[in-house]
Write a protein that binds this DNA or RNA. Structure first.
Lengths: 221, 221
DNA sequence: AAAAAAATGTACGAGACAGTTAAATAACCA
DNA sequence: TGGTTATTTAACTGTCTCGTACATTTTTTT
């Protein structure tokens, strides 16, 4: 569930300090990520974060100013992680259909394996994107996945397997929505429809359906 | 944005009381719906709800026990509303393809017009469905939309326009996910992709894409 | 009409929680 | 070497917020 590993192997000097400012920041962000993902921004407690950190509450305010500043930092770190991974995807060599399926399945699996990220995005949306709007860092992150998608789509159209005229943002939105919803709405959906959506089998089946949905949407015919 | 109309035409007796217990309950739920939808469960303030109500905080605790009891009542009311509307949908006479498109477009439009509902469901999912799990009322609500969908799908397969073997819950999940995401993730998505998703034109275009996606998924071909 | 139950107002208390104060040591750099 | 900056602790403060105690009135039942 938790996607961040806290570095527990830091050395503590005799004076009780770690002499690793950057490690302290990362430690705080890792703990805050799980706290905010679990309980939201209003529900998350600064004292609780401080207690689970190897440093003190004062340091949170020292580095991040206030609770919202910390939340912004948490969001930035979460987005930076996913962008970094997206950038590593190499789908150029494959046939367009295979590439698109692989990209979709990757997204589905990533969101499922990184529920903290999904929950943080939910929380941020409840706050109408106010913190994202204030973060230059995140808005400067260029959206690499769109380049990947553009490349796949153009090749598909050129080869006559995809129909032309589709807005790639629509493709991306569909992939995101179907992957995201499977995590974000799992609790209520499972309860109402009395289906466990978290089993290995259910996930594999749904992932295939999602990929089929995307492929059928772009395919010619 | 707000889906609940508060009855402002109640009569107030000389003693300052409304003598309309049921109206008081509805009034509280209406105000609490917008408060919780806007700020979440932890972020929502009982005092704020009380202040915007025509009654007092005392009555909130009298009728709903505590903050979470009030939230459960809010959820129940919201789900009851959507189920009531779903039940009224009459798509039986139409050709399957048209029915399915209409159902999808209805869902998309409903979610977009009832953002409070969407946000409440987001909030409840952040809480892992704990309140839904505790509400017998909601779990007893039978999921009428599945009957509608089953009827459409079976007719479509019988007529040879839909491919057989699809799980209707998958169809429903896809319709829900695509409709829901367009509201739930609008803030972050719009910011990152620099697209205003709320304009009339953007909504109409996306709604058509969503319907096409669903139809292409079930269609024979 | 008496008694019981339901509905409502006012005021307040206990605890939770974000953020601060003040002091002090270590690292860095000119 | 000495001054400036970075880092850290522990206790404290003021406010916000949920929930309640107590009193009272209205409605329903017997």
């Amino acid at each position: 569930m938790n996607t961040l590993a806290v570095n527990n192997s830091r050395k503590i000097e005799p004076d009780g300090r770690s002499h690793d400012p950057d490690g302290v920041r990362r430690d705080i962000i890792a703990v805050a990520t799980s706290e905010f993902a679990e309980k939201g921004l209003s529900g998350g407690r600064v004292d609780e974060i401080a207690a689970r950190t190897r440093t003190s509450k004062r340091m949170i305010y020292y580095y991040f100013g206030d609770k919202e500043g910390l939340f912004v930092a948490v969001l930035e770190a979460a987005y930076a992680r996913i962008r970094a991974i997206e950038g590593e995807l190499d789908l150029a060599g494959m046939p367009p259909l295979d590439s698109l399926r692989k990209l979709t399945e990757f997204t589905f699996t990533y969101q499922n394996s990184n529920q903290d990220f999904v929950r943080l995005v939910m929380v941020e949306n409840i706050h109408n994107g106010a913190h994202l709007a204030r973060s230059e860092t995140i808005q400067a992150l260029n959206v690499s996945v769109l380049n990947v998608l553009r490349d796949i789509y153009d090749r598909g159209v050129a080869q006559g397997v995809f129909r032309p005229g589709i807005d790639i943002i629509d493709i991306h939105m569909t992939i995101s929505a179907l992957s995201f919803f499977n995590v974000s709405n799992r609790a209520t959906f499972s309860l109402i429809f009395k289906r466990n959506m978290a089993t290995r089998a259910a996930l594999a089946k749904r992932r295939a359906v999602v990929a089929d949905t995307v492929l059928r949407f772009v395919s010619k015919s």
